[in-house]
Amino acid sequence: MNEERKGLKEKITNSDIWRSIFRHGYEDTGRRYTLQILQNVWLHLHPPRVSRHALNFRFTWCMGGITFLMFLVTAVTGVLLMFYYRPTAEYAFRDVQYLEFDIPFGMLLRNMHRWAAHGMVISVMLHMFRVFLTGSYKKPREFNWAVGVILLLVTFFLSFTGYLLPWDQLAFWAVTVGTNMARATPVLGHEGPFAPQDITQSNDVRFALLAGTIVGPSTLLRFYILHCVAVPLLASVLMALHFWRVRKDGGISGPL
């Protein structure tokens, strides 16, 4: 029976029609598997081979990969959201309402963007926890851990700047509360200890963040540009560095 099936398979794959469609078969060799990685622009980030324990979900929790996936989802949905959103005090809130009620799948788009962003914050924290528990920050990966810490901050900042954009009460007050602490920065904040007399609420570090003394239209524009352009660019550069160093430092950590 098996023999017969094999014969049939060969008969089909050797037929003129089959061979006119598929130029060659798929070799089952290590060379083939290696080339599959090396010759693919999306996959060449990977090494051709990894140690077996790197495949183990219980070891990696997949959290680094999930963080990257969440970043990609927010990038794609974010670009689509930008088509419908104007970062001005007059339009921002209405554009979000319009998106929710009138744009086909607008609500779903916004939900995916928001939940992927929240998911990214969770997964990046769990990723850090895993990397610590497995001691993966130890030599030679010290610097990549530092890059990771900065990426954690960048993730928080991306999420925080995005929080303001719907321009509703939730957004407005969360950002007001979140940026209020900057008033108390030592030396650089007007309510902080050791602040020089010329530091006032219209030139301190909080003013630089908000582009005003309270959260206002210029804050919205500032956060919009940080959220959509500046911080994603920074995150991309740091992620490239982070992934590159994972490989240069000997791939995913293991007992050495």
Binding site: F93, F160, W167, Q169, F172, V215
Partner: peptide, 23 residues
């Protein structure tokens, strides 16, 4: 659905005012 409250109003402070959950 992602939350969307009433339009922002600097004169109406909610109590409690909370930062985003991760802060």
């Amino acid at each position: 659905d992602a939350p969307l409250e009433e339009p922002s109003d600097p004169t109406k402070t909610p109590n409690p005012s909370k930062a985003p959950w991760y802060f």
